[in-house]
Amino acid sequence: MATSLTVASRRRWRNLAITAVAVAAFGWISILYADALRQHEFLDGWALAAGMIVLAGFNMRKKLPMLALGKASTWTQIHIYLGYFTVCMFLLHTDFEIPIGALNWALWAVFLIVALSGLVGLFLSTSIPPKLERGTERILLERIPGFRAQLAREVEELAMRSVVDEASLTISHFYTDTLHHFMRRQRNRLDHLRGSPRQLSRIRQDIDNLKRYLDPKGVEILQEIEDRVVAKDNLDFHYAHYMALRLWLFVHIPATYSLIILACAHVATVYAFSTGAP
C-alpha cells in the first residue's frame, strides 16, 4: 500500500522547497549585484541581519504569550527554515572563507555556535520525545526529585528490614556498597543518552547473584528492591533526556545575544571604514 505523506512531512518538503528557492533567488541576485560591480556583501549582509532579527524575534514571541502574535508553532517553522536561509546567506556573505581579523573571526565563530546549537536542538527536539514513552507514562521533570527520594527511602527501608527480619547482612552490604550510591542521585546520564542499558544490567546481575545467599523471604525483599532500582533507572532516563532537551538552549540563547552584539559591532565597523556606494 502506498504510504501517503503526513501533514508534517508535506509541510517539511514545502518549507524546504521555499527555502531552496529563496536561497537560489538570493544567490542569483548577488551574482547580478556583483556583475554590476557592486559589493554583494552589503546586500547579503543586510539580508543576513534582517533574518537574524526575525530569528531573535521568536524569543520575544515566547515572552509575550498574551498577545495575538500568531501561533508559536508557526514561528518555530519560520525559525527553522529562516535559520537554514541565514546560514546560506552567511556562507554567501563570507564567500565561503574563514574571515580575517579578530572581530570578524569572533563573529564567524559565534554564528557557527548558534547555527550548530540550533541544529542540535532541532535534532534533540524531534528525536527525544518519542523515546520518553519508555515506561508506563511521561514523568514530569519537576516530580522526578520527589519520586527519586521516595524510591531511595523505600530501598533503604527494605535493606534495613532484611537485617531486622532476616538477620542477614547480604542485602544491607549490597545496599551500602552499590545501591546507596546509585539511588542517591541522578546517575549514568551519558549512558542513557547513548541508549546503553549496561549500568542497569550490571546492577541487576549483581542482584541476581545475591539470591543464592538468601532465603525465600530475603529473595522477596530483593525482588522489591530490584523493582525500585528499575524504577529509579527509568527516572534517570527521563531526567537525562529532559536535561538534554533544555541544555542546548543554554548554549543557543546566550550565543544569540553575543551574536547580535558582535553583528552590531561588525556593521558599525564596516560603515565606519567603507567609502562610496556599496
Binding site: K62, P65, L67, A68, K71, W75, S125
Partner: peptide, 12 residues
C-alpha cells in the same frame, strides 16, 4: 486576545 494561550504558545 487570540484564544487559548496554551495552544498558541506550543512551539512544536
Amino acid at each position: 486576545q487570540g484564544g487559548p494561550a496554551c495552544e498558541r504558545a506550543c512551539p512544536h
